[in-house]
Amino acid sequence: MTAQRTTILIGQAAIPLVLLALWQVSAMLAGDFYIATPADAFAALDRDWFFDSLGATLLAAFVGFLIAAAAGLWIGVTLGLTRFWGKVLEPVTLSVYSIPKVTLFPIFLTVFGFGLGSKVAFGMFHGIFPILIIAMNATREVNVVHLKVARSLRLSRTQTFKQVIFPSIYPSLLTGLRLGFSLTLLGVILGEMFASRAGFGYELVEAITLHDMPRMYGIVATLVVIAFVVNALLLRWEQAASGPRRAVAAR
Protein backbone atom coordinates (compact mmCIF):
# COMPACT_ATOMS: atom_id res chain seq x y z
CA MET A 1 0.00 0.00 0.00
CA THR A 2 2.58 2.57 1.09
CA ALA A 3 5.04 1.06 -1.35
CA GLN A 4 2.51 1.57 -4.12
CA ARG A 5 1.88 5.14 -3.07
CA THR A 6 5.58 5.84 -3.21
CA THR A 7 5.80 4.33 -6.68
CA ILE A 8 2.94 6.53 -7.81
CA LEU A 9 4.42 9.70 -6.40
CA ILE A 10 7.83 8.95 -7.89
CA GLY A 11 6.18 8.12 -11.19
CA GLN A 12 4.23 11.36 -11.20
CA ALA A 13 7.30 13.39 -10.43
CA ALA A 14 9.24 11.54 -13.13
CA ILE A 15 6.82 12.29 -15.96
CA PRO A 16 7.99 15.86 -16.68
CA LEU A 17 11.57 14.59 -16.63
CA VAL A 18 10.70 11.78 -19.02
CA LEU A 19 9.05 14.26 -21.38
CA LEU A 20 12.06 16.54 -21.17
CA ALA A 21 14.38 13.62 -21.90
CA LEU A 22 12.23 12.58 -24.87
CA TRP A 23 12.38 16.11 -26.16
CA GLN A 24 16.16 16.21 -25.78
CA VAL A 25 16.62 12.87 -27.54
CA SER A 26 14.28 13.81 -30.42
CA ALA A 27 16.11 17.09 -30.84
CA MET A 28 19.44 15.31 -31.01
CA LEU A 29 18.12 12.76 -33.49
CA ALA A 30 16.31 15.25 -35.72
CA GLY A 31 18.85 18.04 -35.65
CA ASP A 32 18.34 21.67 -34.74
CA PHE A 33 16.80 22.64 -38.05
CA TYR A 34 13.76 20.59 -37.07
CA ILE A 35 13.68 20.49 -33.28
CA ALA A 36 15.38 22.85 -30.85
CA THR A 37 16.91 21.37 -27.70
CA PRO A 38 15.37 22.25 -24.32
CA ALA A 39 18.47 24.25 -23.42
CA ASP A 40 18.32 26.34 -26.61
CA ALA A 41 14.60 26.84 -26.16
CA PHE A 42 15.07 28.09 -22.63
CA ALA A 43 17.91 30.39 -23.67
CA ALA A 44 15.69 31.87 -26.37
CA LEU A 45 13.17 33.13 -23.82
CA ASP A 46 14.45 36.65 -23.98
CA ARG A 47 13.68 39.08 -21.19
CA ASP A 48 12.87 41.78 -23.74
CA TRP A 49 9.69 40.28 -24.98
CA PHE A 50 9.00 37.40 -22.64
CA PHE A 51 7.41 39.30 -19.78
CA ASP A 52 5.57 41.66 -22.10
CA SER A 53 4.05 38.68 -23.88
CA LEU A 54 3.27 36.92 -20.64
CA GLY A 55 1.50 40.02 -19.36
CA ALA A 56 -0.43 40.57 -22.60
CA THR A 57 -1.60 36.98 -22.94
CA LEU A 58 -2.55 36.56 -19.30
CA LEU A 59 -4.35 39.90 -19.21
CA ALA A 60 -6.44 39.05 -22.25
CA ALA A 61 -7.12 35.55 -20.95
CA PHE A 62 -8.08 36.89 -17.54
CA VAL A 63 -10.48 39.53 -18.86
CA GLY A 64 -12.01 37.09 -21.35
CA PHE A 65 -12.35 34.51 -18.60
CA LEU A 66 -14.06 36.90 -16.19
CA ILE A 67 -16.65 37.82 -18.78
CA ALA A 68 -17.11 34.18 -19.80
CA ALA A 69 -17.51 33.14 -16.16
CA ALA A 70 -20.03 35.83 -15.27
CA ALA A 71 -22.09 35.48 -18.44
CA GLY A 72 -21.86 31.67 -18.50
CA LEU A 73 -22.95 31.41 -14.88
CA TRP A 74 -25.83 33.78 -15.34
CA ILE A 75 -27.15 32.25 -18.54
CA GLY A 76 -26.52 28.69 -17.35
CA VAL A 77 -28.39 29.17 -14.07
CA THR A 78 -31.26 30.94 -15.80
CA LEU A 79 -31.61 28.18 -18.35
CA GLY A 80 -31.30 25.58 -15.60
CA LEU A 81 -34.15 27.17 -13.68
CA THR A 82 -36.50 27.67 -16.60
CA ARG A 83 -37.04 24.14 -17.80
CA PHE A 84 -38.65 25.18 -21.05
CA TRP A 85 -35.91 27.50 -22.29
CA GLY A 86 -33.28 25.09 -21.06
CA LYS A 87 -34.74 22.38 -23.27
CA VAL A 88 -35.10 24.76 -26.19
CA LEU A 89 -31.52 26.02 -26.08
CA GLU A 90 -29.53 23.04 -24.80
CA PRO A 91 -28.96 21.40 -28.21
CA VAL A 92 -28.15 24.80 -29.67
CA THR A 93 -25.40 25.46 -27.12
CA LEU A 94 -24.04 21.94 -27.55
CA SER A 95 -23.90 22.44 -31.31
CA VAL A 96 -22.06 25.73 -31.05
CA TYR A 97 -19.67 24.09 -28.58
CA SER A 98 -18.83 21.40 -31.12
CA ILE A 99 -18.06 23.56 -34.16
CA PRO A 100 -14.54 24.55 -35.23
CA LYS A 101 -14.71 28.07 -33.81
CA VAL A 102 -11.45 29.25 -35.32
CA THR A 103 -13.04 29.55 -38.71
CA LEU A 104 -15.36 32.19 -37.24
CA PHE A 105 -12.39 34.34 -36.29
CA PRO A 106 -12.65 36.59 -39.36
CA ILE A 107 -16.08 37.61 -38.10
CA PHE A 108 -14.66 38.55 -34.69
CA LEU A 109 -11.96 40.49 -36.41
CA THR A 110 -14.52 42.42 -38.42
CA VAL A 111 -16.63 43.19 -35.37
CA PHE A 112 -13.99 43.85 -32.71
CA GLY A 113 -11.10 45.03 -34.83
CA PHE A 114 -7.42 44.23 -34.67
CA GLY A 115 -5.92 43.89 -31.18
CA LEU A 116 -7.12 43.42 -27.63
CA GLY A 117 -10.87 43.53 -28.34
CA SER A 118 -11.01 40.65 -30.75
CA LYS A 119 -8.69 38.37 -28.81
CA VAL A 120 -10.58 38.92 -25.56
CA ALA A 121 -13.89 38.35 -27.32
CA PHE A 122 -12.56 35.28 -29.06
CA GLY A 123 -11.18 33.88 -25.79
CA MET A 124 -14.52 34.50 -24.11
CA PHE A 125 -16.36 32.81 -26.97
CA HIS A 126 -14.22 29.71 -26.43
CA GLY A 127 -14.50 29.73 -22.66
CA ILE A 128 -18.16 30.47 -22.07
CA PHE A 129 -19.65 27.20 -23.32
CA PRO A 130 -18.33 24.70 -20.79
CA ILE A 131 -19.23 27.11 -17.98
CA LEU A 132 -22.73 27.70 -19.32
CA ILE A 133 -23.46 24.05 -20.04
CA ILE A 134 -22.15 22.80 -16.71
CA ALA A 135 -23.95 25.55 -14.76
CA MET A 136 -27.18 24.69 -16.56
CA ASN A 137 -26.96 20.97 -15.84
CA ALA A 138 -25.92 21.49 -12.23
CA THR A 139 -28.78 23.93 -11.65
CA ARG A 140 -31.25 21.40 -13.02
CA GLU A 141 -30.00 18.94 -10.48
CA VAL A 142 -30.39 21.18 -7.47
CA ASN A 143 -32.41 19.21 -4.95
CA VAL A 144 -36.03 20.31 -5.34
CA VAL A 145 -36.63 19.94 -1.62
CA HIS A 146 -33.92 22.53 -0.98
CA LEU A 147 -35.68 24.90 -3.34
CA LYS A 148 -38.92 24.23 -1.48
CA VAL A 149 -37.23 25.08 1.80
CA ALA A 150 -36.19 28.38 0.25
CA ARG A 151 -39.72 29.06 -0.89
CA SER A 152 -41.22 28.07 2.44
CA LEU A 153 -39.03 30.76 4.00
CA ARG A 154 -40.13 33.21 1.28
CA LEU A 155 -36.56 33.88 0.19
CA SER A 156 -36.00 36.39 -2.59
CA ARG A 157 -34.49 35.32 -5.91
CA THR A 158 -31.09 36.67 -4.91
CA GLN A 159 -31.22 34.95 -1.56
CA THR A 160 -32.28 31.68 -3.16
CA PHE A 161 -29.42 31.94 -5.60
CA LYS A 162 -26.84 32.80 -2.96
CA GLN A 163 -27.97 30.41 -0.29
CA VAL A 164 -29.29 27.41 -2.16
CA ILE A 165 -28.43 27.30 -5.85
CA PHE A 166 -24.88 28.56 -5.68
CA PRO A 167 -23.73 26.25 -2.87
CA SER A 168 -25.37 23.30 -4.66
CA ILE A 169 -23.73 23.91 -8.00
CA TYR A 170 -20.42 25.16 -6.60
CA PRO A 171 -18.34 21.98 -7.06
CA SER A 172 -19.54 21.42 -10.63
CA LEU A 173 -19.17 25.09 -11.37
CA LEU A 174 -15.49 24.91 -10.48
CA THR A 175 -15.06 22.14 -13.04
CA GLY A 176 -16.75 24.37 -15.59
CA LEU A 177 -14.50 27.28 -14.68
CA ARG A 178 -11.41 25.11 -15.01
CA LEU A 179 -12.38 23.90 -18.47
CA GLY A 180 -13.51 27.41 -19.34
CA PHE A 181 -10.19 28.95 -18.43
CA SER A 182 -8.27 26.47 -20.56
CA LEU A 183 -10.42 27.17 -23.58
CA THR A 184 -10.28 30.92 -23.01
CA LEU A 185 -6.50 30.71 -23.02
CA LEU A 186 -6.63 28.71 -26.25
CA GLY A 187 -8.96 31.27 -27.83
CA VAL A 188 -6.73 34.16 -26.79
CA ILE A 189 -3.64 32.50 -28.22
CA LEU A 190 -5.41 31.80 -31.49
CA GLY A 191 -6.62 35.39 -31.55
CA GLU A 192 -3.07 36.62 -31.01
CA MET A 193 -1.81 34.47 -33.81
CA PHE A 194 -4.02 36.22 -36.32
CA ALA A 195 -4.72 39.68 -35.07
CA SER A 196 -2.42 41.12 -32.50
CA ARG A 197 0.96 42.68 -32.04
CA ALA A 198 1.40 41.32 -28.53
CA GLY A 199 1.29 38.09 -26.58
CA PHE A 200 2.64 34.60 -27.03
CA GLY A 201 0.41 33.85 -30.00
CA TYR A 202 1.90 36.78 -31.88
CA GLU A 203 5.45 35.87 -30.86
CA LEU A 204 4.83 32.33 -32.00
CA VAL A 205 3.80 33.49 -35.47
CA GLU A 206 6.86 35.74 -35.59
CA ALA A 207 9.08 32.82 -34.71
CA ILE A 208 7.45 30.67 -37.37
CA THR A 209 8.00 33.34 -40.00
CA LEU A 210 11.68 33.64 -39.04
CA HIS A 211 12.05 29.88 -38.64
CA ASP A 212 13.40 30.63 -35.17
CA MET A 213 13.20 27.10 -33.76
CA PRO A 214 14.47 27.73 -30.23
CA ARG A 215 11.99 30.56 -29.76
CA MET A 216 9.10 28.47 -31.09
CA TYR A 217 9.89 25.65 -28.72
CA GLY A 218 10.45 28.06 -25.86
CA ILE A 219 7.04 29.63 -26.37
CA VAL A 220 5.18 26.33 -26.73
CA ALA A 221 6.86 24.95 -23.62
CA THR A 222 5.94 28.11 -21.70
CA LEU A 223 2.31 27.83 -22.79
CA VAL A 224 2.16 24.21 -21.69
CA VAL A 225 3.60 25.11 -18.30
CA ILE A 226 1.13 27.99 -17.83
CA ALA A 227 -1.82 25.83 -18.84
CA PHE A 228 -0.67 23.04 -16.58
CA VAL A 229 -0.04 25.21 -13.53
CA VAL A 230 -3.31 27.14 -13.74
CA ASN A 231 -5.22 23.95 -14.34
CA ALA A 232 -3.55 22.18 -11.41
CA LEU A 233 -4.37 25.06 -9.09
CA LEU A 234 -8.01 25.13 -10.18
CA LEU A 235 -8.15 21.34 -9.89
CA ARG A 236 -6.93 21.56 -6.32
CA TRP A 237 -9.63 24.04 -5.47
CA GLU A 238 -12.21 21.86 -7.17
CA GLN A 239 -11.16 18.76 -5.27
CA ALA A 240 -11.18 20.63 -1.98
CA ALA A 241 -14.72 21.81 -2.70
CA SER A 242 -16.02 18.32 -3.35
CA GLY A 243 -14.20 16.76 -0.45
CA PRO A 244 -15.45 13.78 1.56
CA ARG A 245 -17.84 15.83 3.67
CA ARG A 246 -19.94 16.73 0.72
CA ALA A 247 -19.27 13.55 -1.20
CA VAL A 248 -22.60 12.01 -0.27
CA ALA A 249 -24.57 15.03 -1.38
CA ALA A 250 -28.23 15.27 -0.58
CA ARG A 251 -29.54 13.60 -3.65
Binding site: N143, V145, H146, K148, V149, S152, L153, R154, V164, P167, S168, Y170, R245, R246, V248, A249, A250
Partner: peptide, 16 residues
Protein backbone atom coordinates in the same frame (compact mmCIF):
# COMPACT_ATOMS: atom_id res chain seq x y z
CA UNK B 1 -48.18 33.82 10.04
CA UNK B 2 -45.68 31.99 7.89
CA UNK B 3 -45.95 28.24 8.42
CA UNK B 4 -42.80 26.31 9.12
CA UNK B 5 -42.44 23.17 7.01
CA UNK B 6 -40.61 19.92 7.58
CA UNK B 7 -40.53 18.06 4.28
CA UNK B 8 -41.12 14.41 3.53
CA UNK B 9 -37.72 14.18 1.86
CA UNK B 10 -34.42 14.97 3.50
CA UNK B 11 -33.82 18.66 3.29
CA UNK B 12 -30.79 19.57 5.39
CA UNK B 13 -28.27 21.50 3.28
CA UNK B 14 -25.17 19.33 2.84
CA UNK B 15 -22.93 22.39 2.50
CA UNK B 16 -23.84 23.78 5.92
Amino acid sequence: GMPGIVFQQESAFPWR
